[in-house]
Amino acid sequence: MSDTVSDKSLEDMSKSFALTTRLDAIAAWGQRNALWPLPYGTACCGIELMSVMGPKYDLARFGAEVVRFSPRQADLLVIAGTITEKMAPILVRIYQQMLEPKYVLSMGACASSGGFYRAYHVLQGCDKVVPVDVYVPGCPPTPEAVLDGVMALQKMIKDRTPRPWKEGWVSPYEINANTIPDTLTSSRVVDSMTRGSGV
């Protein structure tokens, strides 16, 4: 057995069945083409997000059709709609419950900056409490814009774009953070692979 392997050179092997790649690159390929979004639709954008998922625009074409309402099963948090002050602690808790690697897409003006609600009960942008990777403008954004945002995120994953906003993030509500056991927030194996290669 050992003889037959040593007889073949690496080059021969690649011609027959193997494909050479870096482990982190193939992990990123898998990640970006199989995003599992959690649709956090709080307002009007949630209705447009239905369009994105729906028959005409069909997010499934980009590998992100497995909509998960459980943060444990999702890796892309799509914040679609206004985040009010009352909602902010819940949003943070949902984000903390997601497993690594996780990404956040802020859909629409309200989620990104409070939009035209410069008002007493509206959080002026969800990035005040969670780290956002992609902002999609619009009120609400067209489905094309959301698809563009998802593609931008896929490119980020592919290029392993540094995400300093994410690395340095701590929960603004430390009390809630302590209620989640460490074991539940530990990273997936794939994540430690990507992180190992100098992100």
């Binding site: 002050e85 009352k86 902010a88 602690p89 819940i90 808790r93 410069r118 008002a119 007493y120 009960h121 509206v122 959080l123 002026q124 603004p172 509500y173 009390i175 809630n176």
Partner: peptide, 12 residues
């Protein structure tokens, strides 16, 4: 009460 005077919420 001013329209844009926000008050943050930290718990549920």
């Amino acid at each position: 009460y001013e329209a844009d005077k926000q008050q943050h919420c930290s718990s549920v």
